[in-house]
């Protein structure tokens, strides 16, 4: 599903964010991307979203080289990749339903599709009762659930999460992780960049560790730190 082939990304001024990285992530995998701040996790995600273009190497998503994607095709790539962030990125003046519906609206889905899909996904994330609340009226965990609902409502092939639990307490974080696991069970590839060692150690999934832009570890059922 995702394939990096000798990918290097450096920024002007000589900072190397990703150095000669090669890896494969298969369809339906659940992967943690770990490493300290500045290790290249965010660049990894930005490359996948085609917000950045690699200097060398190829990045294949669903068999297509996204570095050579023409400008007008980028939105169609992003429709296949749902994305969740630490700061939720909800629209504060739209309610829960509208925030999720917005994702379908802007890709031109007809009204009846929106009317049937949004309640379904709100049910999945457990927010059916809060569909008319504004983000400001929700707890952090609830807001992140709305963000996950928005990312997944279009049934993307891949779900990326950049520090999804960074702003949440451990219990709430576990709830979000269970939600992401459920989404993973529907066949969606899930990639989570995090430095929340608690959840990584607890879930024992594939762990990819970056350090200064280099892949230093790729472990099938890993933990956050070295060992095991």
């Amino acid at each position: 599903m995702i394939s990096f082939e000798n990918v290097t990304k450096d920024y002007k001024g000589g900072t190397v964010a990703i150095r000669d990285m090669s890896l494969e992530i298969d369809k339906g995998e659940f992967v943690f991307l770990v490493g300290s701040s500045g290790s290249g996790k965010t660049t990894f995600i930005r490359l996948l979203l085609r917000e950045e273009v690699p200097n060398h190497g190829r990045i294949l998503v669903a068999g297509r080289d996204i570095a050579n994607l023409s400008q007008w095709r980028i939105p169609y790539l992003r429709r296949n990749i749902g994305c969740v962030f630490q700061d939720f990125r909800l629209l504060p003046n739209k309610n829960v339903f509208e925030n999720v519906a917005f994702a379908l609206e802007v890709i031109g889905r007809p009204k009846h599709v929106i009317a049937s899909q949004v309640p379904q996904i709100l049910d999945l994330v457990g927010l059916s009762k809060k569909r008319d609340s504004l983000p400001g009226e929700l707890s952090g965990g609830e807001q992140q659930r709305v963000a996950v609902a928005r990312a997944f409502v279009n049934r993307p092939l891949i779900l990326l999460a950049d520090e999804p639990t960074g702003n949440l307490d451990p219990t709430t974080s576990q709830g979000i992780m269970r939600l992401l696991e459920r989404i993973n069970k529907t066949g969606t590839t899930v990639v989570i960049a995090t430095h929340d060692s608690g959840i990584v150690d607890q879930m024992r999934r594939r762990v990819i560790e970056l350090d200064h832009g280099t892949l230093v570890r790729d472990q099938a059922r890993g933990v956050y730190g070295y060992g095991t």
Binding site: L77, V106, R150
Partner: peptide
């Protein structure tokens, strides 16, 4: 700009924006 960035994130085409 928030809305525009969300629109880009979920794959709205440039023309739509």
């Amino acid at each position: 700009r928030r809305e525009v960035s969300v629109m880009k994130l979920v794959g709205a085409t440039n023309w739509f924006i």
